[in-house]
Every structure is written in structure tokens, then in C-alpha cells.
């Protein structure tokens, strides 16, 4: 896997005038990298992540995922790209409240043609990986914050992604739980060679990356 970002710019239109969220960002990421993206609030960290996931369109520049042009792909192509290549971990966990832990993990496979038993077994395997096998039938509200984030990580892995995009994954967790989740992400990164791009405010979390990107007012520094 190779992710190459060239001259990436993103400009938001605001009533007070255009706002440059990203300015000529250039970098590349290779398979197995653990990249942390830091910066102050409003520096463009999340905008960068959204552009990389194809969730918003960049104003100019290119984003190349292997041979796939994320910046110019159609909505349908981007849906397929995310479904097949990307796992998401978010600060708010974003678990579906009416699905059990194992159903939440299986969710990204809901539109795939994979056999029902195969989906189930894979989800169970991932719940084992994150240590929640015995909580498979629990609803999110029956799980602690740390457990919910671990379910979210398992969900991010169900489609065997090559890239995980994590947005402040420890933002809602206390320091002990944060370390637990960061350790888990690091072990997944190392054992499965999955590339991780993690946006974080936390100096502790930023230590986990083997590459660090710092953004200041939309520019790499």
C-alpha cells in the first residue's frame, strides 16, 4: 500500500471570506506506517483525514492510493474504496445503538456477499482480538467507553483494511484506557502491517507513531 499526497489544498467558503484549511500539503505513507497527525485546534488535521478518506473533495492537488485517485473519484467509487480498503476509528465510537457488539463489528460487511457464517466467525475472531468475546451480545449502552472503542476497532478491521484512519481515538477516554487503546492499535499495526493515520491532540498518543506530521494553519511543519 502506498498513499501519496501532492500539493493538497482545501479551501472552505465562509461568509467572511474563503478559509484555507490545507495549503500545499505533500507527504507519502507506506505500508505498515503508523502516522500521527498533530496540530492545534483548527490547524486542518481532521480536514486532512477527511480528504484522505474521500469524505470531502479537496480544492486542488492529488491523493493517490496505490493507483486510485481519491481526489477525483465519484461518490460510488469512493464508497467502494472505503468499504474495501479503509477502517475508521472515531472519538465518539459511532456504534449503532440497536446492534450488539458482534453485529456492530459485522456492520461494514452488511452489503457484501460474504457468507453469513463467515461474517460471524470473522467478527467473533476480531472480538477475541480486542478481548471482548464474552461481550459479543451486549448492546453499546451495556459496555464501558473503553470497551466501546475496542468494538469500534474490531469493526474497523472487519473488512481487512490496508489503512486505518483514526480521529482522536482516545479523546473520550481516561489516560489508562487511552494507553490500552493505543497499545491495541500499535499491536494491530505491527502484527498485521496495517497502515494507521491517527489524528490526535494528545502528546502521549503522538508518541506511538513512527512518522509524525504536524500541521500549523493548514501547512505541514
Amino acid at each position: 500500500m502506498n498513499l501519496t499526497i501532492t500539493n493538497l489544498c482545501k479551501q472552505y467558503h465562509h461568509a467572511d471570506g474563503p478559509v484555507d484549511a490545507l495549503k500545499n500539503v505533500n507527504f507519502s505513507v507506506n505500508k505498515g506506517d503508523f502516522v500521527t497527525i498533530t496540530g492545534s485546534s483548527g490547524s486542518g488535521k481532521t480536514t486532512l483525514l477527511l480528504c484522505l478518506a474521500g469524505l470531502i473533495k479537496s480544492t486542488s492537488g492529488t491523493i493517490l492510493f496505490n493507483d486510485f485517485r481519491i481526489d477525483s473519484a465519484s461518490d460510488k467509487q469512493l464508497s467502494g474504496f472505503r468499504m474495501n480498503n479503509v477502517g475508521f476509528v472515531m472519538q465518539s465510537f459511532a456504534l449503532i445503538p440497536y446492534l450488539t457488539a458482534i453485529e456492530n463489528v459485522m456492520l461494514p460487511l452488511a452489503v457484501s456477499n460474504i457468507d453469513k457464517a463467515q461474517k460471524y466467525n470473522r467478527a467473533l475472531e476480531l472480538l477475541k482480538l480486542v478481548g471482548l468475546e464474552n461481550r459479543k451480545n451486549h448492546l453499546p449502552k451495556e459496555l464501558s467507553a473503553g470497551q466501546q472503542q475496542r468494538v469500534a476497532i474490531a469493526r474497523a478491521l472487519i473488512n481487512k483494511p490496508t489503512l486505518i484512519l483514526a480521529d482522536e481515538p482516545t479523546g473520550n477516554l481516561d489516560p489508562a484506557l487511552s494507553i490500552e487503546i493505543l497499545d491495541l492499535l500499535k499491536s494491530i499495526n505491527q502484527s498485521q502491517a496495517i497502515t494507521i493515520l491517527m489524528v490526535t491532540h494528545s502528546p502521549l498518543a503522538s508518541q506511538y507513531g513512527n512518522h509524525k506530521i504536524h500541521l500549523t494553519d493548514g501547512c505541514l511543519s
Partner: peptide, 16 residues
């Protein structure tokens, strides 16, 4: 809204 946004994020198309 957040739930539907989540579906879209993980790859559900508009058609789905």
C-alpha cells in the same frame, strides 16, 4: 443523522 453518516463513512452508497 450520525448513524446514517456512519453508514456512508464505512462505504454504504447513497443508493443503499
Amino acid at each position: 443523522r450520525k448513524e446514517i453518516g456512519m453508514f456512508r463513512m464505512i462505504g454504504f452508497s447513497k443508493g443503499i
